[in-house]
């Protein structure tokens, strides 16, 4: 992809992010931080590329370490978000 199309995706995604995040209810701001944390670990994609490609042993091990760290975040982030969201309950209607 050329730089301009990448930049377009980025700028548009910033706008999408802006409107989507303003629509998040303040009561869920803590789960929001936990889930954004989990999804920002999509950086694992870069770590996987580094670990999978031959060429540099050092790069490979740095990549594997990054895979471990990002996995902690992905599993931990989604699991803790799930745990928090499960606690939000409505009043029981009589």
């Amino acid at each position: 992809m050329d730089f301009i199309s990448i930049l377009s995706i980025f700028v548009l995604a910033c706008f999408v992010g802006y409107y989507v995040v303003w629509s998040v209810t303040p009561a869920l701001h803590t789960p929001l931080m936990a889930v954004t944390n989990a999804i920002s670990s999509v950086i694992i994609v870069g770590a996987l590329v580094a670990s999978a490609e031959a060429g540099s042993a050092a790069a490979k091990y740095l990549g594997l370490l990054a895979v471990v760290l990002a996995s902690v975040n992905i599993f931990g982030g989604f699991a803790v978000t799930e745990r928090m969201l499960a606690m939000y309950k409505k009043k029981e209607r009589k």
Partner: peptide, 28 residues
């Protein structure tokens, strides 16, 4: 940080996510 790495790798998932998380944190 994730977005910048997405630029390096030309990976749209990373760029979209980075932008989302970046704006989310900024708004908070």
């Amino acid at each position: 940080a994730a977005a910048a790495m997405g630029f390096t790798l030309g990976n749209s998932a990373m760029i979209i996510t980075g932008a989302l998380v970046g704006s989310s944190g900024a708004i908070l």
